[in-house]
Simulated scan of single mutants.
Amino acid sequence: MSTDRATFAQVVDSVREQTSLLLGSTIGFTDEDWARPTALSGWTRSHVAAHLADGAMAMIRVIEGLRQGIEQRLYESDAAKRRSIELGALASGLDLQIRLDTSASTLQVELPELEFDARPVELRAGYRLPLRRLPLARLSEVVLHHMDLAPHFEPRDLPASIAVELLRFQVDRIGRSGDYPPLKVVADEGYTGVVGRIGDGIEMHGPAGDLLAWLARGTESPRIYRA
């Protein structure tokens, strides 16, 4: 079975939809809930929320800078990024929820204008992509961090074309990094991707959403298997 590529408009709509689902999961969090640890080493839910809000505002700064002819990175440095997250994580649960909501809403207004913009943006040192793919980068952050914030959220509920796009994005992000062993992922929806060092490696099969969660977070699933 194969699935069509998601259109730019579908990705932008999915950013809004998935953000709404995330905010629905966190709206009832108490300050104690926000302080709970996540599977991300050293990060509480508050850290994840601060990172998501910072990420949205960083994307807005990059977009506005390019409008003025100024190319800039998402973050000044890794140290500045970490410092901002640590400070943001000190906020109350209510303030975190408000920051998540307002930053996401502000960014959402900007995303539809990027469809045909091929100017490069640096997401991290050595990793650049065309500005038109920024909505997909944001969608990846929202979906993966929703998993971190709310364990009940499962990416198998994503539309097939969106799950494939996110898996493809994750494969492209990892690339042929020597930090990863050779690996091929084969999605039921018709997509195949290869990451890690060159060589013969393992081959994992299953739904794109489950493969995404496994590749990005090590989340096991009875729906994926090694061939």
Rank of each mutant, 00 (worst) to 15 (best):
F153C: 14
Y180E: 07
R124K: 12
R83H: 14
Q170I: 00
V194M: 04
R5Y: 09
R119M: 05
Y127A: 10
Y75E: 08
K184E: 13
I202N: 11
R67W: 00
V143F: 05
S41D: 10
L96E: 06
G206I: 05
D95P: 10
T3C: 05
I174V: 10
P155F: 08
Q68H: 10
G218M: 02
E113Y: 11
A150W: 13
L183P: 00
I63Y: 01
P181E: 06
W34N: 09
D95L: 13
R197Y: 01
P120L: 07
G93S: 08
D172M: 10
T38E: 03
R223C: 09
D172A: 12
A150F: 11
I174K: 02
R83C: 12
D172C: 09
P155T: 15
S103L: 05
R5T: 15
L90R: 14
L123V: 11
A35N: 10
V121R: 00
D157K: 15
E32T: 05
V186L: 01
Q108V: 09
S46A: 13
M204D: 02
V11D: 01
A56L: 03
P159Y: 08
L21K: 10
A118Q: 11
A50T: 01
L74G: 08
R223L: 13
M204I: 12
A79K: 10
A216D: 13
S140P: 04
T44E: 04
L66D: 05
I174E: 03
A80V: 06
L123C: 09
E17F: 07
G206P: 06
D200E: 12
V164I: 08
D172W: 13
R217E: 02
L87Q: 15
Q170G: 06
R67M: 05
R61S: 14
R173C: 03
L87D: 12
S2D: 09
E110R: 06
A125L: 06
A56W: 00
E110N: 11
L21T: 11
L136I: 08
E165Y: 03
V171R: 03
A50L: 01
G126A: 06
R226Y: 03
P159Q: 09
T44K: 03
K81T: 01
L87M: 14
P37Q: 03
H47C: 06
R83V: 13
